[in-house]
Design a protein around this nucleic acid. Structure first.
Lengths: 240, 240
DNA sequence: CAGCTACGTTAGCACCGTTACGTTAGTGGT
DNA sequence: ACCACTAACGTAACGGTGCTAACGTAGCTG
C-alpha cells in the first residue's frame, strides 16, 4: 500500500508540541467511528490520517492502549454530562434514577465501540475508570441514596453503594447485550429498557425485606406480590 | 525464536484426518487457560504445542475465529449440563431459576476468557450462539415459564421470553463486570450474586402491575413496598 | 507396483505494534 | 551574529501476527 499522497503535517512550533496530540485523538476517534472496531484502527492508520509518520504517535502516547484509553476518557466525559442533564429534568429521586438509567443505555448504544473497549476490554484500571467512578458512578450512588432517604428504597446499613452496584450491573448487562448480541429477541428496545428499569427499581424496594425469608417461603411471598394468592394469603406483608 | 525442539507429530492415518482437529482444540483450550487472553494465543503457538506447522491449522479450521468459536462451543456445552444439574436439585420453579442463575455466574467466572469471547466479542452470530439458544437459554425460558404457571411471576401475553431476556441481561451484567472490573467494590461476591438474584426475582413479580402506573404514582407505590408508607397508604395494592 | 488423494510442509505476503537512532527547526545564551 | 541545545519529528528496522499459494509425501486402492 503505497502512501501516494503525502500532505505532510507542518511541524508544530516550539511550545505547541501537544497540538499534535489533539489531532491524533480526533483522528483516532474518527477512525473508530468509521471502522467500528478497535482492532480495525491501527496506529499506522491514525498516523496517516493525521499526516505524520507512525513513530510520532509514541511521542504523545505510551502505546496503543494509552491512545485508546485517552479517546475513551474524552468520550466518557460526555456521559457525566448526559447523566447530569437527565437528572435535571426529573421530578423526584426515583425519576432521577430512572432517567439516569435511560441516559446511560442511550449513551452506550450511541458510543458502542468506546463502551465495548471500556467495559469489555482488559482488566487493569485505566484513566477512563477514574472518570467513571468520579464523575459518573458518583451521580448514580447519589440518586440511589436520595431514593433511600425518600423511603422509596429501604435504607441499608451498608449505604447506597451495594444497591447502586447491582443497578449498574443490571443496566450494563442490557446495554452490553444490546451492543454485542443485537440479533437476540429484544423486541422494542425502548420498551425493554423501560421494563428493565422498572424491574430493577421494584426489586430494590423489596430485596431488603425478602432477604431474611426462608427459601421455602420466598415463592409464596412472591406469589402474593404477583397478584395471585398462592396459598390464600392476601395482602399481609410487613416486617417491622 | 528458533523452534529448537521439533517432536513432529506423526502423520494421521488415511481416514483419521480429523484426529488432529481434536488435538488442536485441546491445545488451544490449554493455551487460553495459560495465557488468559485470546490475543495472547496465536495460531503459531497452538501449532507448535500440537507439534505441527502453522498452515496445518487452516486445514481443519477456516480461520482463527473459527478455531476459537469451536473451543467456545465445547466449553459452553458444559454450561448446558451445569444448568440442568442446578435445576435438578431445586425444590420448586423459583428455586430452579435461582439455582440456574447461580450456576450461570459460577460458570462465567470459571471460564472467564471463553465467556468474554462469546459475549463481548464480535456481533455476528456464531456456532456457539446456537449452542446457547438451543441448549442453555431454552432451560431458562422454561424455568421462567414454570414460575409464571405457578403464579410466582405474573403471566404475560408475551410469554416468558421477554422476562427471561431481562433476567439474562441482569445476570450477564453482573457476571461480565465481575470478570472485566473485578477491582470494583463488589463486596462478598456470593452475597452480591444472591442479592442480585433476589432483586431480579422480586422485580419480575411486580413489574407487570407497576407498568400501568402513572410515573408520579410509582414512587409512592414503591415506598409502600419498601416498608415505609410514604403518604399514609398501607398495604393496599391490587389491580384486577 | 502405479497412481491418486488426503495430509501436512515450505516459503512468503501484507500487516501489525514498537524501538533505536538520525534529522530538522526554532530558541536562548554569549 | 553565531552556536549549542533541545523539542518535534522522520528513517529504518525488528519481531510478531493471520493467512495463503504452491509444493511434497505418506499411505491406501486398483
Amino acid at each position: 500500500m503505497a502512501q501516494s499522497t503525502k500532505p505532510r503535517r507542518r511541524r508544530a512550533p516550539r511550545g505547541q508540541g501537544a497540538a499534535l496530540r489533539g489531532a491524533i485523538l480526533e483522528a483516532a476517534r474518527q477512525l473508530l467511528a468509521e471502522t467500528g472496531s478497535e482492532e480495525a484502527v491501527s496506529v499506522r492508520s491514525v498516523a496517516e490520517k493525521v499526516g505524520v509518520t507512525t513513530p510520532s504517535i509514541y511521542r504523545h502516547f505510551k502505546d496503543k492502549d494509552d491512545l485508546m484509553d485517552a479517546v475513551c476518557s474524552d468520550v466518557f466525559g460526555a456521559l457525566a454530562n448526559a447523566l447530569a442533564k437527565a437528572a435535571d429534568g426529573a421530578a423526584g429521586p426515583l425519576d432521577r434514577l430512572l432517567a439516569q438509567g435511560r441516559a446511560y443505555i442511550d449513551f452506550a448504544l450511541a458510543n458502542s465501540e468506546e463502551y465495548r473497549m471500556v467495559f469489555m476490554g482488559g482488566c487493569a484500571p485505566t484513566n477512563t475508570d477514574d472518570v467513571l467512578t468520579n464523575d459518573c458512578f458518583s451521580q448514580v450512588i447519589a440518586a440511589v441514596g436520595a431514593c433511600m432517604e425518600a423511603g422509596i428504597f429501604p435504607s441499608s446499613p451498608d449505604g447506597p453503594l451495594p444497591v447502586a452496584m447491582r443497578l449498574f450491573a443490571a443496566v450494563h448487562g442490557l446495554a452490553a447485550l444490546l451492543i454485542c448480541k443485537p440479533w437476540m429477541p429484544w423486541g422494542d428496545v425502548g420498551s425493554m429498557v423501560e421494563a428493565m428499569l422498572l424491574m430493577c427499581a421494584a426489586g430494590c424496594s423489596l430485596e431488603g425485606s425478602l432477604a431474611s425469608l426462608a427459601p421455602a417461603e420466598l415463592a409464596g411471598e412472591l406469589s402474593v406480590l404477583a397478584g395471585r394468592p398462592a396459598r390464600g394469603k392476601l395482602p399481609g406483608r410487613r416486617r417491622a
